[in-house]
């Protein structure tokens, strides 16, 4: 076990050495990493796709005489095999068939789904919140005037500010409207303001998480490997 742990620690240090400069240790780790991952991918594709999605279903289909399933699997495999046409200059263009099938299918597949999740769901969330309450809510503004405090101010303004932000940023990205159009001119500054606060906040939010990743790695070296090494050598 100690050997494997030590390998793990040495490889970690080799990767970290890249921060100092490119060096043979890093090159070794990098090339080992690539080789291992590609080999691993071959095994995954073989076991998860070739065996599980082609060979096994074909033998099941043969046993049960499911002709349609069999034909479907054979066609898919043949289309996939067309990729291998790339190895010959003469019939190279045949590999465009699997490409256009894949690209076409995923494109069609994305249309309605993206319109729903990326657009309609987001816009709906700008009209009402998760509980179905409208974001522009006159009662909350009334509450603030009745009982002015930071909390009621937040409740009263959060919705309107959100709606305003969404609209100005949407307008900011219009492609076919000239810069001097009054609507775009108006939206420009506030939109950039919203965007920069948003990106800055996301940056800051992730920052702490990333720092803890490094601490996690150090933890492995000092709290897992080091005691194991001491134990093995000492004991």
């Amino acid at each position: 076990m100690l050997i494997w742990y030590t390998i793990a620690v040495l490889l970690s240090l080799a990767i970290f050495s890249f921060l100092w400069k490119d060096n043979p240790l890093y090159k070794f780790a990098e090339h080992l990493f690539v080789g291992t991952m590609v080999g691993y991918q071959v095994v995954v594709v073989f076991s998860q796709i070739i065996m599980r999605k082609i060979v096994d279903p074909i033998s099941v289909a043969l046993d049960n005489r499911q002709i349609l399933t069999l034909i479907s699997l054979v066609i898919a495999t043949l289309i996939g095999l067309l990729f291998l046409a790339r190895f010959s200059r003469k019939v190279e263009w045949v590999s465009r068939y699997p490409i256009s099938i894949t690209v076409g299918f995923w494109s069609g597949y994305a249309i309605v789904a993206s319109f729903k999740t990326n657009i309609l769901t987001q816009i709906r969330g700008t009209v009402v919140d998760d509980l179905g309450q409208p974001l522009l809510n006159g009662h909350l503004i009334g509450d603030f005037f009745k009982n002015p405090s930071l909390k009621t101010l937040d409740l009263a303004t959060a919705g309107p500010l959100l709606v305003f932000g969404v609209i100005v940023v949407l307008v900011y990205f219009f492609f076919s409207v000239k810069h001097d159009h009054p609507m775009v001119k108006f939206a420009n500054k506030p939109a950039l303001f919203y965007l920069m606060i948003g990106f800055g906040a996301s940056f800051g939010y992730t920052f702490m998480g990333r720092i803890s990743l490094f601490i996690g790695r150090m933890n492995f070296i000092f709290n897992e490997w080091w005691p194991l090494l001491k134990q093995t050598i000492g004991g």
């Binding site: 816009i123 009209v127 522009l136 949407l170």
Partner: peptide
């Protein structure tokens, strides 16, 4: 690209009239 902008304009309009609808207590437009 122009069509994309026009659909976006329509989406913004849909957002605004849905909000107005909600101000009158109706979620029908939404």
């Amino acid at each position: 690209l122009k069509a994309q902008d026009m659909i976006k304009g329509a989406v913004i309009v849909a957002l605004i009239i849905s909000i107005i609808g909600m101000l009158f207590g109706s979620d029908l437009l939404m």
